[in-house]
Amino acid sequence: MNIFRFAGDLSHVFAIIILLLKIWKTRSCAGISGKSQILFAVVYLTRYLDLFTTYVSLYNSVMKVLFLATSGATVYLMYVKFKATYDHNHDSFRIEFLLVPCALLALVINHEFTVMEVLWTFSIYLESVAILPQLFLVSRTGEAESITSHYLFALGSYRALYLLNWVYRYMVESHYDLIAIFAGVVQTVLYCDFFYLYITKVLKGKKLQLPA
């Protein structure tokens, strides 16, 4: 565990907490893509199956349970408790366009052709593109509330920090995982446009609004 990895994990937890608090306090999930939240739940479910087979550390296990529980809670709040506020007309991204290619790619490019390994690979590929329905929703409505922008910034920062972690681990431990690195780069690149808008607008107190 190095500082980049830990900062990345903190950023990830922070993003999830921001989102849950926003939904809970405003009693609304307006502006949030339920499709992205479902994809994240699928990501955690398929990746953290190893919770039952491999023990790494108490920290890892606690975080895995936390991610599973909070993503489940987010999906519940959006599709059950505050269903009436869910913006499903704008959340029209077709997730099968992400699920199917990720599944096929995981079957072809993986470290080992076993159920656990293919599911892990699938979750890595899916995570890299899971934010697309959310970014699509923001582009369709043309704007995002500040709190949604903070959520996206924290969520995007998490994988960017992991990239630094992988550089560090390669240099110090000679450890690297090409699948994770490739997907992590894709994931971070998808946020670049948003990062630019966040830094130039939201941090200066303006609302995130896309040019018409």
């Binding site: 990895r5 190893d50 790494v56 890892n60 991610f67 892990w120 450890h175 995982d177 994770a180």
Partner: peptide, 10 residues
């Protein structure tokens, strides 16, 4: 590294 990389990350 590579095959059977340790999955100690989240």
């Amino acid at each position: 590294p590579g095959v059977n990389a340790k999955k100690d990350e989240l």
